[in-house]
Design a protein around this nucleic acid. Structure first.
Lengths: 127, 127
DNA sequence: CCGGATCCCAAATGATACTG
DNA sequence: CAGTATCATTTGGGATCCGG
C-alpha cells in the first residue's frame, strides 16, 4: 500500500491502479486507519484523545496515519494557536462517504470476530 | 495484522482484541485479501484463474492469502483429484457475509479513487 | 500539548527455482 | 495445474529523544 506508482497490482481488465477494492483498501487499510476513521464517525477528536482511544498506537504512527488520511482528503486538521496548543481532527465530506463502510466493518467485526479468531473456531463456519 | 496475540492494539473500552473495525480489517486487509474476496463474489474461481485476474500477485502470495482466508473460514477449497489437477475456491456462508462490505468498497473505489489519488487532487475534497 | 527526527526490528510481500 | 521452498527486499510499526 501507499505506493501508488502505476501498473502495480492491476486485476482483470481494470485500469492502471488495480481494482477498485484495492484502491479502497489502500486508503482505509493498514493497522490504524480504519480505527481512526471509526472514532471520527462520532465527531471531532483531539490528538491526545486518540492516544487514549487507542492505547496501542505510538505517537509516531498516529501522526503518520493522520497525515496520510489528511493527504488523502478524508480528514481535516484544525490547529488552534493557544497555550496549551490544541489540534482537532474531523471527517471531511469525502471522509464521510466512507462512514457506511466503516460502520459496516464495525458491525461485521462485532458479529463474527469471535467465530474466526484463528484459534480453531472456524470449523463449523463453512459447509 | 495476522498477529492475533493479545492485548495488541486495543482501543477504547473494547475487549482484548481491539475494536471491531480492527478485527474486520485484520481479516480482509492486506494487499490481496479484499481483491480475492471480490473476485469470489462472482462465483467459484480456480487457482490459475486468480493469477490471470491478478497479474501482480505471485504464486506464493496467492497461496498464502488463500490459505489464511480458508483458515479464517471465509473461503472453501475443493480439490478435484484428476489429471491435470483442479482446485476450486468459493465463498463459505461466513465469507458471503462479507459481500456487502466488499461490494461497498468496490463502489467507493470506483467513485473516489481518482479524487484521492495522492497526486494532488485532494484539495477541493474537504472544506 | 502536539508533534518531528532518527534508529531499528519484525512482518509483509516479492523473485525465482523446483515439484507431485 | 497447483502448488513448495528459499532467498531477498520492502514496508509497517515501535522506541526514544528532541523541539516549538
Amino acid at each position: 500500500m501507499r505506493n501508488r506508482k502505476a501498473g502495480y497490482g492491476l486485476c482483470q481488465g481494470d485500469n492502471a491502479y488495480g481494482c477498485p477494492v484495492e484502491a479502497t483498501l489502500d486508503v482505509i487499510g493498514g493497522k490504524w486507519k480504519g480505527v481512526i476513521l471509526y472514532h471520527l464517525t462520532g465527531g471531532t477528536v483531539r490528538f491526545n484523545e486518540f492516544r487514549r482511544l487507542m492505547p496501542g498506537i505510538t505517537q509516531r504512527m498516529l501522526t503518520l496515519q493522520l497525515r496520510e488520511l489528511e493527504s488523502d482528503g478524508l480528514i481535516r486538521r484544525e490547529v488552534f494557536q493557544e497555550i496549551p496548543p490544541r489540534v482537532e481532527y474531523s471527517l471531511t465530506d469525502l471522509g464521510r462517504t466512507l462512514e457506511e463502510i466503516i460502520l459496516a466493518m464495525r458491525a461485521w467485526g462485532e458479529k463474527y470476530q469471535r467465530l474466526s479468531a484463528r484459534d480453531g473456531a472456524a470449523e463449523d463456519a463453512g459447509r
